[in-house]
Amino acid sequence: MKFNGKAWKFGADIDTDRIIPARYLNTSDPKELAKHCMEDADPTFASRVQAGDVIVADKNFGCGSSREHAPIAIKASGVACVIAKSFARIFYRNSFNMGLPILECEEAADSTESGDVIEVDMSTGEIVNVTKGKRFKARPIPPFMQELIAAGGLMESIRKKGAV
């Protein structure tokens, strides 16, 4: 999996209420949720984000609630990948379970600015900031998580195991 897109930079501790405010959680329709993605962090995000763009954030991205609506909204908005210094635990788990690519990389998070063009190779964890001409290596994804992604997410892996 390779991506190439524009970076949207966010700060530390971006919580799930800012990714998708609870006032919109009376639905789980991805298209509806995407309309309000990141609304309380950047109200212009949903209307300006382009398919293939990348969210780059500081530490503890996705802290707060367990709502899967957060990774769903991000994925449905067209974002290809989220890069952060670290992720909150449930957000991390949800992203893998439902197939939103995410990478942890402190250096990339520090040196990226909004608008930079970013290239990501999920299989090697290599991140290139094309605008700044810099290369970074993300923390490797644990083998178990790679298997989950390869199986097509948690539900597919259950189906393949014949548990249904």
């Binding site: 367990s66 709502r67 449930i90 379970n97 539900m155």
Partner: peptide
């Protein structure tokens, strides 16, 4: 706490 997909998996298995 987990997400909805985790809950679905646990409800089945």
């Amino acid at each position: 706490g987990v997400g909805s997909t985790d809950l679905a998996a646990a409800m089945i298995t």
